[in-house]
Nucleic acid binder design. Structure first.
Length: 271
DNA sequence: CTTTGCACCTGTTGGC
DNA sequence: TGCCAACAGGTGCAAA
């Protein structure tokens, strides 16, 4: 469900409800997520006040003086702010009960997500320390992309989905960015011209910004923290549109599988 | 070092 | 209507 824009949408939705609130209780109904929810979460988080809520790649960070809650939504995770008295549903695995009477509730049918606790500088955590630049910052440019692509033979689509290259480009937006940049997904990353790298970096920024602006993409089940679906799916040019006409030239959109994930592209607009 | 494929789960969809 | 295979927005890890 969530790529970077959906995570950012979630962050913006929960932030006003969690920052400056104290965590009074942690309820773990099922600790078996991607990694077990650690006992240190409840032990060290309860009594702490959340000082800031941030995003790094697709990780959400809830910071306190004692440490940071790291949350990843995986493929099917979601966070909602509900009253602490709202009865939990199936797959509502973790609650952070807040001093306001609200509760930050983590829901995740597939349980590919994670809720972890890290002390000290969260940037030093092994999960975050090797991440590449945030795509929406100045640190991410065509030149930086070109530099890290040097000598790489992997398909450009898998390349931009590698979080060590650029943090947080997932399957939908990789296809969409390559469409905007006019580049075929299977091209070798290292073979791209400097101009193509520049166009690709711009396209990644553009598609992510636009999707955030529209509250993310809802394909089947993404709901932002207020329960509303995203509106970006109407803007998708190629993702999920195999066989349908390209919006730009009318040629049939193709679905391929470089690696084991679906890629979509227009054979005429992308070279 | 890079590249590839797998594993982890449940739910939905589409074809027969 | 029912059944079953294929597929789904992620990503760390092991193996080559």
């Amino acid at each position: 469900m969530p790529e970077l824009p959906e995570v950012e949408t979630t962050l913006r939705g929960i932030r006003p409800h969690v920052v400056k609130k104290r965590v009074v209780r942690v309820v773990v109904r099922n600790r078996r997520l991607r990694w077990p929810v650690p006992a240190s979460l409840a032990a060290e988080l309860v009594g702490q006040t959340i000082t800031a809520a941030r995003r790094r790649a697709k990780y959400l960070l809830l910071e306190t003086r004692a440490g940071t809650v790291l949350i990843h939504l995986g493929m099917s995770g979601g966070l909602r702010v509900v009253s602490a008295r709202t009865p939990p549903g199936r797959h509502d695995h973790v609650d952070l009960v807040l001093s306001s009477g609200d509760c930050l509730r983590y829901h995740d049918p597939r349980r590919f997500g994670a809720i972890l606790w890290t002390r000290g500088d969260p940037g030093q955590d092994p999960l975050l320390s090797r991440l590449g630049p945030e795509p929406l910052t100045r640190a991410f440019t065509g030149r930086v992309l070109q530099e890290s692509a040097r000598g790489r033979t992997a398909a450009v689509k898998s390349f931009i989905m590698d979080a060590r290259v650029v943090a947080g480009v997932g399957n939908i937006y990789a296809s969409e960015a390559l469409f905007l940049a006019g580049i075929r997904p299977e091209r070798a990353a290292g073979a791209l011209s400097p101009e193509s790298c520049a166009r690709l970096a711009c396209a990644i920024k553009r598609v992510l910004r636009d999707a955030i602006h529209r509250g993310g993409t809802t394909l089947r089940d993404f709901k932002s923290s207020d329960g509303r679906p995203g509106r970006f799916q109407a803007r998708l040019n190629v993702y999920g549109r195999a066989g349908e006409p390209c919006r730009r030239c009318g040629a049939a959109v193709l679905r391929t599988r470089p690696g084991q994930r679906s890629a979509y592209h227009c054979p005429r607009c992308q070279r």
